[in-house]
C-alpha cells in the first residue's frame, strides 16, 4: 500500500468512526440514563429504526431535516414511555418487554416506512474537519455532522448532572437502591418512567442520524443491531456517559474498517468486516462482564448483570 492510500484509509477510518459512532453514541447515552435509574430497555433497536423512519418522513414532508430530528426524538420518547409504563406494573420483566418493543418498533417503522423507500428527503448539512489538508478525498472522508457535537455535549452534560445535581442524585438513587429512594420520598416508578422516556428520545435522535446523514436514506436494512450493540456498549462503558462516547467511537472505527478498505479497492472479506462490530461487542462483553471494576460501577437495581 502506498503512503497516500494508507493516509486515505486512515482518514476514512477516522472519518467513518466519527460518522458511524454517532447513532451508537445517542443510543448508548439513552440506555445509560435508563440503566442508571435501574431499568434495562432492550427495545432501543426498535426505537432507532422508528426514529430513522420518522425523521426521514418528517424531513420529506416538511423540508426541514432538523424538524425530522425532533420528531424522531418524540417517536422514541413515545416508545420509551410505553416501555416505562408497562414495566412499572408488578411482575412484568423489563428485558422481555424490551424484546417485544424491539419487534413492535421495527414493525411500525417498516409499516409506515414503506412509502418512503423511494423518495429522497432533505438531509442534514455537514462540515469538514479535513479542509485544511487541501486533499479532496481526505476532506470528504472527514465530513462530520453537528449531531456528533450535540451528542458529545449531551454526554458531558449528563456526566455533570449525575455528579452535581439533585436530579442526577435522584436518578442514581433509584438505580442503586429502590428502598432507599422510596424512604427519601422519591417515586422510583416515576423516575424510571421519565428516564426511560428521555432515553427513548435520545435513541430516536440517533435513528434520525442514520436516515438523514449517514448512510442518509431510509430502507429496511438501515439498522442491523446498532441499537442492541449500544446497549452492550453501556456495560463496557461502565455506566459513564463520557466513557460511552469513547466506546461509541471505538465501535464506529470497527464498523468503518470494511467501507474504508473498500474505498481503496480492497473488497476481500467485506462480509467479514461487516461482522467486526458484532464480534467486537461480544469480545468486549466477555472481557467486561464479571470484572471487578464493572461490578463496582453497576447500578444495584439492574437485572441485566445479575
Amino acid at each position: 500500500m502506498s503512503d497516500s492510500a494508507f493516509a486515505i484509509v486512515f482518514f476514512a477510518i477516522v472519518g467513518g468512526a466519527l460518522r458511524v459512532s454517532t447513532p451508537f453514541m445517542f443510543v448508548a447515552l439513552g440506555e445509560c440514563l435508563t440503566e442508571k435509574s435501574g431499568r434495562v430497555n432492550l427495545g432501543l433497536e426498535g426505537t432507532l429504526v422508528l426514529g430513522a423512519m420518522t425523521a426521514y418522513a418528517v424531513s420529506y414532508h416538511s423540508g426541514y431535516p432538523w424538524l425530522g430530528v425532533f420528531a424522531a426524538g418524540l417517536s422514541g420518547a413515545v416508545l420509551g414511555a410505553m416501555h416505562g409504563y408497562i414495566c412499572k406494573l408488578p411482575k412484568v420483566n423489563d428485558i422481555a418487554v424490551g424484546i417485544a418493543m424491539m419487534l413492535f418498533g421495527t414493525g411500525i417503522a417498516f409499516f409506515f416506512g414503506k412509502a418512503y423507500i423511494q423518495p429522497s428527503a432533505p438531509r442534514l448539512e455537514s462540515f469538514s474537519l479535513g479542509a485544511w489538508t487541501g486533499n479532496q478525498q481526505i476532506a470528504t472522508a472527514l465530513q462530520i455532522n453537528p449531531l456528533l457535537l450535540v451528542g458529545i455535549a449531551v454526554a458531558i452534560l449528563m456526566a455533570w448532572a449525575f455528579a452535581n445535581t439533585k436530579w442526577g442524585l435522584i436518578v442514581r438513587m433509584a438505580g442503586d437502591s429502590a428502598p432507599a429512594a422510596t424512604a427519601m420520598g422519591v417515586s422510583v416508578d416515576l423516575v424510571r418512567f421519565l428516564s426511560t422516556t428521555f432515553g427513548g428520545f435520545l435513541a430516536g435522535v440517533g435513528g434520525a442520524f442514520l436516515s438523514l446523514f449517514y448512510p442518509g436514506s431510509w430502507n429496511q436494512g438501515l439498522s442491523s443491531g446498532q441499537g442492541l450493540m449500544a446497549v452492550a456498549l453501556v456495560i463496557f462503558a461502565r455506566w459513564s456517559p463520557v466513557r460511552c462516547i469513547i466506546a461509541a467511537l471505538l465501535f464506529g472505527a470497527a464498523g468503518a474498517i470494511g467501507p474504508a478498505l473498500q474505498s481503496v479497492g480492497i473488497t476481500q472479506g467485506y462480509y467479514f468486516f461487516n461482522a467486526a462490530p458484532y464480534i467486537l461487542t461480544l469480545l468486549i462483553m466477555i472481557a467486561s462482564a464479571g470484572s471487578k471494576r464493572a461490578m463496582r460501577d453497576v447500578p444495584g437495581e439492574l437485572s441485566i448483570t445479575k
Partner: peptide, 14 residues
C-alpha cells in the same frame, strides 16, 4: 456472566 439475551442476538448477526 455475559448477558445471554444480548449475546444470543449478537451471535445471530455474526
Amino acid at each position: 456472566g455475559v448477558n445471554e439475551t444480548i449475546s444470543s442476538l449478537l451471535m445471530t448477526y455474526i
